[in-house]
Computed example of a mutant assay.
Amino acid sequence: MKQAERSLEELLVLRAQAGDSRALDQLVRLRGPRLLAHAMRLSGRADDARDIVQEAWIEILRGLHGLREARAFAAWATRIVTRRAARFVKGNVARRALSAAVSVETETSMPDVGEAASDARAVRKAMSSLPPDQAATIALFYLEDMSVAEVAIALDIPRGTVKTRLMHARAKLKDALKGACDE
Results as ranks from 00 to 15, higher is better:
E69P: 00
G66S: 11
R22P: 00
L140N: 03
Y142L: 04
K172Y: 00
R29D: 13
L130R: 03
K125Q: 15
R15E: 14
R95C: 01
R15P: 01
K172F: 00
P158T: 07
A85S: 13
E69N: 07
A74P: 06
E105F: 04
Q3V: 07
L36D: 04
R68T: 13
D48N: 09
D156F: 02
A39D: 08
M110H: 05
R71C: 05
A136V: 01
K90D: 14
A135T: 00
W57P: 10
L35P: 07
T82N: 09
L11K: 14
L140T: 08
E55Q: 14
L140P: 05
A74T: 14
L140M: 15
L35T: 06
A149P: 04
A117N: 00
M127R: 07
R22L: 13
Q134R: 10
G160K: 12
Q26A: 12
S118R: 13
V81K: 06
T137C: 11
P158D: 12
K125L: 10
R96T: 02
G179K: 07
E107M: 12
V104W: 13
L30D: 05
D145F: 03
E5P: 02
R15W: 04
R50G: 03
A72W: 02
E59C: 01
V104I: 10
E144I: 02
G91W: 08
K2C: 05
D48Q: 09
L30C: 08
K163E: 11
H168F: 08
V148M: 07
I153M: 11
T108F: 06
R170P: 01
F88K: 03
S21A: 15
T78Y: 06
A176Q: 09
A122N: 14
K125T: 13
R79Q: 12
A152N: 06
